[in-house]
Amino acid sequence: MNFKNWTYLQRRIINWMAKIVLFLFTFLALLPLIMILFYVLRQGGNVLSWSFLTTLPGPTGSTGGMANSIVGSLVMVALASIVGIPLGIVSGVYLSEYGVGKTANILRFSLDLLTCVPSIIVGIFVYGIVVIRYGFSAYAGAFSLALIMLPIVARSSEEIFKLMPGHIREAGLALGLSRWRVILQILLPGCRKAVLTAIMLAVARIFGETAPLLFTALGNQFYARSLSQPTASMSVQIFNWARSGFADLEQQAWAGSFVLVTLILFMNLATRFLGRVRS
């Protein structure tokens, strides 16, 4: 760019205009956030009550709630975490501690691939591998959530373990600990807080996932009697209410969004707080 033909005043004016434009862009980016939070708080806050959290969803005209979908979401996220978190941490340990060679490179590549796969594709895979044989179930939903969670936990825990300085590992080895005990008794406890933060972020992410649950857990108007039955989840319930076309069900969707957004934002804030304690 050629600035030399301009006077100093012109350049300063342009500088100020650019600053203002950049500020406006930032404001523009934050405007939707403010509006979404405002609408969710106002519309959802009006409808939200204790009975909304403790009753089953009803047809239009009746006061329904989302008790079954809260339970369903919690169950599926818990199941997904039981599978996804240990697997993710194990592959994180492998990548950071033994992370050279063919296996590690292929694993890293496949985890990257899994990160960038749209979540609905994960849903198709689980449909093909589980749902076709055993039908819609909480297991299928949890499996798809675990697949989404796995690469996030793995790559972030790899980064965390790599930050642990090498001399701490060497100190453990010098004291005569074998390698697996260095990993289990020095590395993992030392990184506990950071790993916990990464896990919380991943859990917050899968709480809001809708697309893969549409055709793995399907949804349910009642409590699922067992884990092999179609199960309701908060996000799918909101989706169904929003598309119902009835005004009172739409109000319930606002309340559902209120619960979901509050939960996710709370988890994000908590990770923020944990991170601050660490540093």
Binding site: Y39, F239, A242, V261
Partner: peptide, 24 residues
């Protein structure tokens, strides 16, 4: 502070975006 808000924007689930988009 602003970067925290921008990160929050990424954390909101997409079904809520769609719902907000549909009704606002």
């Amino acid at each position: 502070a602003l970067s925290f808000l921008i990160e929050t924007l990424a954390a909101i689930p997409s079904v809520v975006y769609g719902f907000w988009g549909l009704f606002v």
